[in-house]
Amino acid sequence: MNDTDTSPEPEVGEAAAPPENTGPSLEEQLAARDAEIAELKDRLLRAAAETENTRRRLERDKADTAAYAMTGFARDLLAVADNLRRALDALPTAGVEGVQAGIEATERELIAVFGRNGITRIDALGQKLDPNKHQAMLEVPTADAEPGTVVAELQGGWTIKDRLLRPALVSVAKAAE
């Protein structure tokens, strides 16, 4: 017998006393640990998925911000384009060809700058009224066009990339009386 061991040893022929049940069995402890591990793995996977979704959303927001950052500037330039068009429309048909040619060249350059920056004019004339692109200002009775068709454009509409920058102000045909 070991000097440090003070527990009595069972005598020969005596059965050892069964250990007292002091808590969950080893199998129960392992099952509880496995369940905890599974829960932690699930939480980790969910956190990783949420992080990835957040990253993707931030990348999408960043791309939108870059694409549409110049919206205010573009709106301001639309007034310039409108004034150039009004000047061209007001010129007499005879004379001042040099001035007219200069204004037309300026307008072409402005339209080219718009195009390089994703700003495009909405084609309205002859199209069916689309409230997503057009704003009806007048209804004109006519037999020349189907009701609901744009017959005149009062002010051009524009888009920037895939978003409406300004709707086209239009006159729309209605049935002749």
Rank of each mutant, 00 (worst) to 15 (best):
L30M: 09
A49I: 01
I37N: 08
F73I: 13
T54L: 14
L45V: 08
E28M: 05
K41P: 01
A69Y: 07
E59C: 01
E59L: 11
M70L: 14
A48P: 01
D61M: 15
T51K: 15
A63Q: 14
N53L: 09
L30V: 07
A47V: 00
E27K: 07
A69G: 04
A74M: 15
A74Q: 09
R75P: 03
A67S: 10
T71V: 05
R60C: 00
L40S: 09
K41A: 07
R60Y: 08
D34V: 04
A35V: 04
A69K: 06
A69I: 04
E36R: 15
A48W: 06
E36K: 14
G72I: 02
K62C: 07
E50W: 03
R75V: 03
T51Q: 15
T65P: 00
A74H: 11
A66D: 07
Q29N: 02
A35F: 03
A48L: 14
A48T: 12
A63K: 10
A74F: 12
M70S: 12
R43V: 01
R43S: 09
L45C: 03
Q29L: 10
A49P: 00
A38H: 05
A47C: 02
R60L: 12
A32L: 02
R33Y: 12
T71R: 13
K41W: 02
K62H: 09
R46W: 05
E36D: 06
R46L: 05
D64W: 10
A63P: 01
E28R: 07
A48M: 13
L45A: 15
D42C: 11
L30E: 05
Q29S: 02
E39S: 13
A48C: 05
G72W: 03
E27S: 03
A66R: 13
L45Y: 11
R55L: 08
K41R: 14
R33C: 06
A66K: 14
E52Y: 01
N53Q: 10
A63I: 06
T71A: 04
E59H: 01
R60Q: 13
E28Q: 14
E52N: 06
A69S: 14
A69E: 12
T71S: 06
T51F: 09
Y68I: 04
A67N: 08
E39R: 15
